[in-house]
Every structure is written in structure tokens, then in C-alpha cells.
């Protein structure tokens, strides 16, 4: 099934989501971020998937967030299921969701520095130290 794709801005985002809830889209299924580092401006694209079980249809919302600003309103009060997803987006990309009840790291340790899924965060940056292995600098 091809979802209907809607582009939005950070200002209109919350109103748009509220209208979905009234339209009978009961579930927010997924929220994720794409990092367009040095490819697109603004840098971060937030992709939210919605599902209506009564109409059997899907909608996708795409919002671009600026690299300097990084803030977007949280939709947890409209869809409580956004809670974990927004925390994950904060953890992995550093997007700040305004008015989120508990915006902390979810998958990485609390004292972790950096946001691993950003494109300028190299994978394998931190060497894995095995037990009894000779230390490598």
C-alpha cells in the first residue's frame, strides 16, 4: 500500500497532526529521522507514519528541521505512542522535541556523547576492546 505523502513545516506540523487525529487516523505507527548531511538543506528530515484502521489507509508526514535550531514540537500529547520514538530520535540524531515529558536517551547510555546515527558520526569510531587482548591506542 502506498501512503499519501504530505510535506509540512515545523510551524504547521502540530496542527496538521491534530487534524489527522480528527480525521480518524488512530495510530502513529513510526517516527524516524533521515540525516541529509551536506546533501540537502535543512539537514534533518523527520518522517512520521500514520495508520487509520477504520479507513484502511496510511499517511506519511515529512518535516525538515534546521541543523542550528534542531527543535520541533512534540506530538506525545496527541499520540502517546510517539513517546519512545521521539526519545529514540533525540538519542540517535539529537533532535529536540519541545514539551516532551521525558526527553532522555533511550538506547544509548545516559552519559554517551554524540548522536550515533548522524552521518558525520563514523561507525567503528570507538575501538572494541576484547578481554585479554593487547591494548591498541
Amino acid at each position: 500500500m502506498n501512503p499519501e505523502i504530505i510535506s509540512s513545516t515545523t510551524e504547521e506540523y502540530k496542527e496538521l497532526i491534530e487534524s489527522f487525529k480528527k480525521d480518524g487516523f488512530e495510530m502513529m505507527v513510526d517516527l524516524t529521522v533521515v540525516d541529509w548531511f551536506r546533501k540537502k538543506e535543512p539537514r534533518f528530515e523527520i518522517v512520521v507514519q500514520f495508520l487509520s484502521t477504520s479507513k484502511n489507509s496510511r499517511k506519511t508526514v515529512k518535516v525538515f528541521v534546521n541543523d542550528e535550531d534542531l527543535t520541533i514540537p512534540s506530538i506525545t500529547e496527541i499520540y502517546p505512542s510517539a513517546n519512545f520514538y521521539e526519545r529514540e530520535a533525540y538519542d540517535m540524531f539529537g533532535i529536540i522535541f519541545e514539551d516532551h515529558p521525558d526527553l532522555t536517551r533511550i538506547l544509548m547510555p545516559d552519559d554517551w556523547e554524540g548522536h550515533p546515527l548522524r552521518k558525520n558520526y563514523g561507525s567503528g569510531r570507538i575501538p572494541v576492546q576484547f578481554k585479554n587482548a593487547p591494548k591498541v591506542d
Binding site: V29, D30, T32, V34, D35, Q49, P80, S81, F84, Y85
Partner: peptide, 15 residues
């Protein structure tokens, strides 16, 4: 893939 994301059902159900 430029970005690969999997929506795991357990992640959401745990909420």
C-alpha cells in the same frame, strides 16, 4: 541504503 529503519513491534508494544 542511505538510511534503513525498522519499526519493531516490540518497541512500540512495550510502551
Amino acid at each position: 541504503p542511505y538510511r534503513m529503519h525498522v519499526r519493531g513491534p516490540s518497541f512500540c508494544n512495550l510502551q
